[in-house]
Design a protein around this nucleic acid. Sequence first.
DNA 1: GCTAGGGGATTGTGGAACAATCCGACAAGA
DNA 2: TCTTGTCGGATTGTTCCACAATCCCCTAGC
Lengths: 259, 259
Amino acid sequence: MTGVFDALAADRGRLDRASAAQRVAEVLRDHITEGLLAPGTRLSEEALGEALTVSRNTLREAFRLLADQRLVVHELNRGVFVRILEPDDVADIYTLRLALETAGVRALHSAAPERLAAVRTALSCAEAAEAVGDWVTVGTADLHFHQAVAGIAGSRRIDECMARLMAELRLAFAAVPSARGLHAPFLRRNQTLTGLLETGEIDDAVVELTRYLDDARAVIVRAMTDGPMTDGPMTDGPMAGGPMAGGAMPDGPVTGSAR
Amino acid sequence: MTGVFDALAADRGRLDRASAAQRVAEVLRDHITEGLLAPGTRLSEEALGEALTVSRNTLREAFRLLADQRLVVHELNRGVFVRILEPDDVADIYTLRLALETAGVRALHSAAPERLAAVRTALSCAEAAEAVGDWVTVGTADLHFHQAVAGIAGSRRIDECMARLMAELRLAFAAVPSARGLHAPFLRRNQTLTGLLETGEIDDAVVELTRYLDDARAVIVRAMTDGPMTDGPMTDGPMAGGPMAGGAMPDGPVTGSAR
DNA sequence: GCTAGGGGATTGTGGAACAATCCGACAAGA
DNA sequence: TCTTGTCGGATTGTTCCACAATCCCCTAGC
């Protein structure tokens, strides 16, 4: 009976057109994650308000939304700045990622089959993009893949949390040139992980996922600390022998700073 | 050399006093989590602005902050309402809690000892409050305890995430009268969990924690679905015949809303 | 009884104004 | 020369006001 309406209700969110603040936030968000607005850039209320033809009030609301997503930081009486991601932040992000994604894996047996199907779909998407050499899309698909893994848990809040983390990660990618080459070596590991999931080997999947995230974190942290300038030997092509640092394990405790 | 300055830099955060919007948000947050503002209550911009003597703009910024913490929901052209927590939400919260807290437990061996000490401290605090029969404090300490468990992971983001969840949970507690008696049976299990942690039995701790959260969720969900009105057989506690409790639902339409 | 329309109230957005604060520049003193 | 005190411009924080857009309830009309 209600099935028809449920289907409509799912798209209900599209109805209430976004407020001006939301639209402005979306535009800024895209610019930031695309790397068009470099981290550390100050977002002047007056200049931006004029550029986007919105009032300062509206713009400030948009800033709150972006600060909520941690894409900008708001310093009192100083303004808002495009977030600068420190290596510590990346390490921290991966800690939380591990918690969320393993939660998804561990929930595999009690999850709806569509959840696992979504993982496979994201993987296929990445493979297709790789075949064409479209590394930007590969990167996006990689994020979607891991979002799907966490999504196995079937929790709205976990999904939201992951979406945030992925947006933050884009910041890191934007800071690292040649980041597109970064995804290639990990695509294969996504494939093996998917295999383990589809055969229901939860424990093995958790182990593989743990190693995967450790390695990925190490690669990105090193790319960041090596200096965002060195664009040297990484802009390779398709085959790309994995540059993954094996036992890189940079620092131990990864204590959070004072923020 | 720089050690002295680093120590100062750690307290730097105390410098920037809060903006008006932040202060307003804090006041409202307290009122909401205390249950003074019942879920569903509409927060009129004009009325609140006059009551707090802040302008509508400032108030709207405060609303954004609260919406960020999921304590209120913002419906376009309709206003902001104190969040109504559905049983589904509680279940979802516990799913994420499980992921975060087990992440803490699993990180036990590589964590700094202070992390575990914080768990013990929170437990002692709860025990002390129980001895006096102060159930409100017991409830608060319980939340701190579990925050400390997740905190073992040593991740800033996990800590933040947990803090949010706990704030949301307070919403649920506020919706359930006699919630203060809810914590008593779980205090003992916190003790056994702490014991497992202190002896380093990670696997057993994870199992116990999983069961714990499952049970706690079931209790709260049932208390919610049984109807927040029926205050019948649950007001156990020492004696304390529920003083007000039931009178939570104030007046107004409190529209069911779709969300 | 139900639908359509009107009126009131509230929010969304823009704009202006002033206070508070920050930051850089310049000057005075050691 | 280096440090410290002071000043002024620029930006943000906050308030106030105005008006359009929207929602909600109430009433009239079929």
